[in-house]
């Protein structure tokens, strides 16, 4: 039985709807992970120990309030989201390998969630690649944000936890940015379906 499927392109609004569902999940996961990590990690430990000052993605100029964000063009918003997502491919590997030996009572659950983060992140990245192909050359540009933190988060127990917690806090913030940009894009694309936003 030979069938010819009428190849109907998926509308951009649908792709953005799916992408923002996945980015929503990505951020929610990072929030759950943060809470799980913090539940057995005395704040005092975080206060006294030195920690890196800035996230490796902080050089990327992103809007810092609604007025700025709503002035950014669609292609730039998508480019920001893709740049941030790609910037986390390597550090998520570091988090993943570190999670296996994390000195934390919820180590196993943390490790599983990091795996899930990686899958969601990869799938979202693939989806945004397709989207950017439909949104013109400007959406193809991406900023390089290299992670220079190395594969080792520290020798002793506390510094390993501190650096793991800091890296995760950076991911949590960046995943919120990605989610916010995609939801603004989604509402712009949904102009014909006002009930969507």
């Amino acid at each position: 039985l030979y069938m010819v499927a009428a190849c109907k392109a998926v509308p951009i609004s649908d792709l953005l709807d799916r992408a923002s569902q996945r980015s929503d999940r990505l951020h929610s996961l990072s929030t759950m992970l943060t809470r799980e990590l913090d539940s057995h990690f005395p704040p005092i430990g975080r206060m006294i120990m030195p920690r890196p000052a800035m996230c490796h993605t902080s050089s990327l100029q992103t809007p810092n309030d609604k007025e700025q964000a709503l002035q950014v063009s669609e292609s730039d918003l998508l480019s920001l989201a893709r740049s941030l997502l790609r910037a986390w491919v390597d550090p998520l590997l570091v988090l993943s390998s570190s999670a296996n030996t994390l000195p934390h009572p919820a180590q196993n659950s943390i490790s599983n969630k990091i795996q899930e983060l990686q899958e969601h992140s990869k799938n979202l990245g693939d989806g945004l690649n397709i989207l950017s192909g439909k949104m013109g050359p400007a959406a193809q540009t991406m900023s390089l944000l290299p992670y220079r933190g190395g594969n080792d988060l520290g020798q002793d127990k506390i510094s390993k936890l501190i650096n793991f917690q800091f890296l995760l806090s950076c991911f949590r913030r960046d995943s919120h940015k990605i989610d916010s940009f995609l939801k603004v894009l989604r509402c712009r694309a949904a102009k014909m379906q006002p009930e969507m936003c």
Partner: peptide, 9 residues
Amino acid sequence: ADTRSGWIT
């Protein structure tokens, strides 16, 4: 809450 622009969902 500005839901229309997608700033808040």
